[in-house]
C-alpha cells in the first residue's frame, strides 16, 4: 500500500467513526422520537457484530493445516475461563494473549 492509499484507508476509518458518532445527533434533534426498528437493531446488532469480529480475527486459522487452530482454541478457552472467574477485562485479555504468545513460541 502506498502512503496515499494508507492515508485514504485511515481517512475512511475516521469518516466512518465520525458518521456513527454524529448521525444520531443530526437525525434526532431535540425531542424527536426514535423509530422502533432502530431501537430493535440497537438491542440485537452489537452482539452479532462482536461475533463477526471474532470470526474476522480468526479468518487466517486453518483447521486442516498448520497448527489446526489449537493455540487459538486453547487461548480463547482460557480467556473465557479467566473472565468468568474474575470478570476483570484487562486480566482476561492479558492472560489470553500471554497464553497464545507462549503457545506459538514454545509449543507449536
Amino acid at each position: 500500500m502506498t502512503l496515499a492509499q494508507q492515508i485514504i484507508t485511515a481517512a475512511m476509518v475516521v469518516i466512518g467513526t465520525v458518521i456513527t458518532r454524529f448521525l444520531p445527533f443530526i437525525i434526532f434533534p431535540d425531542g424527536k422520537k426514535t423509530p422502533d426498528y432502530i431501537k430493535y437493531l440497537g438491542d440485537v446488532l452489537p452482539l452479532a457484530v462482536f461475533g463477526l469480529l471474532i470470526v474476522y480475527c480468526l479468518r487466517d486459522v486453518s483447521i486442516l493445516h498448520g497448527t489446526h487452530g489449537i493455540p487459538e482454541l486453547i487461548s480463547i478457552a482460557l480467556t473465557l475461563g479467566i473472565h468468568l472467574w474474575r470478570r476483570k477485562m484487562i486480566l482476561s485479555i492479558a492472560a489470553g494473549t500471554v497464553c497464545y504468545m507462549l503457545l506459538v513460541h514454545f509449543v507449536f
Binding site: 480475527c57 473472565h83 477485562m89 482476561s92
Partner: peptide, 18 residues
C-alpha cells in the same frame, strides 16, 4: 509474535460480557 491475539482476546471478552 502472537501479540495480535490481544484483539481476538478483547473481542472475546466483550462478546462474553454482552
Amino acid at each position: 509474535k502472537g501479540i495480535e491475539f490481544v484483539m481476538t482476546a478483547m473481542f472475546t471478552v466483550v462478546f462474553l460480557e454482552q
